[in-house]
Amino acid sequence: MRPEMTTASLDTAARTSAERGALARARLLRGLLPALSLALVLLAIAWLNPRAISYFGFSLMLNLAIPIALATIAQMFVIAGNELDLSIGTFVGFVGCVTATWLKDAPLIGAAILLGSIGVYALLGALIHLRNLPSIVVTLGMSFVWQGLAILVLPKPGGKAPDWLLGLMAFKPPFVPFPIIAALVIGLIVHFGLMRTSYGVILRGSGGNPAALGRAGWSLLKTKIVLFALAGLFGVLSGMALIGITTSADANIGNGYTLLAIAGVILGGGEFVGGRVSPIGAVIGALTLALAASPLLTFMHIPPDWQVAANGAILIIVLAARVLISRRER
């Protein structure tokens, strides 16, 4: 991975490369951890129910993976700036309700509402930066606002997804199930945007050392607005994808996504502070959670009453493994 060192440097070179090799190994291990945990869950499923490992089985098990992955990416943008979004779940629900009503009946108004809601997210970012408010408080408040709006738009479960959206989400490519392809595409696009572009560096730097970024003349207000707007954008995509799959909406449909998204980011190798996030890891984390949620636990014959707790136990095990590995890195 690393270019060979050509400079011969005193007697420290040997020690340096050894210590560097250890660091690189630890980093690689940490980078692979999300993939490892996914593989582990897959192995467990294959062992419990070999028939599940098939085109049809994956399409079924990963049914809801796309909206979860999109919501996780939304949360990841917020976490990249050292903030936390507790409203992403109800926001996804609100978007779902708008998608199943306005977007179908009056597409222009529906699109305007969704664009406006992204604007609201951007404004929240500005507010949090300018007034130095804790994002947890602001977004917790907003979660009730989105929930209330969702109920206003769709007082009781119903509505219908636009046909084009239904068609898109029902797409059945040959050989590889659609959710896997979609997850791959989402991960790669966001990876390119956040990890490879020159402005992506600034966005991540705003989480790593905001003071240094300010000293270099960058606007921290702008980075925060951009990060929150991106979170809003991916929240909208998540809500639309969700309705494309479920075909109709309910004001509470996204409520579980808030914690699922946070867990996905952390499972994927992200950290709450310091701008350390990984888009591909986050998508893998979301897939792992989607698989570990109901399919695995159902195959394990764990009664539904216990599934939520079992899900939490899986999270704790994976996160504990991560802590152990990062500690060895020190």
Binding site: A212, R215, G217, G274
Partner: peptide
């Protein structure tokens, strides 16, 4: 005043708006 989460090259980019 380096960002610890970024690489050496990426930290250089932060000080040079023209590196894009």
């Amino acid at each position: 005043s380096l960002c610890p989460n970024l690489s050496v090259a990426e930290n250089t980019r932060i000080n040079h708006a023209s590196l894009r």
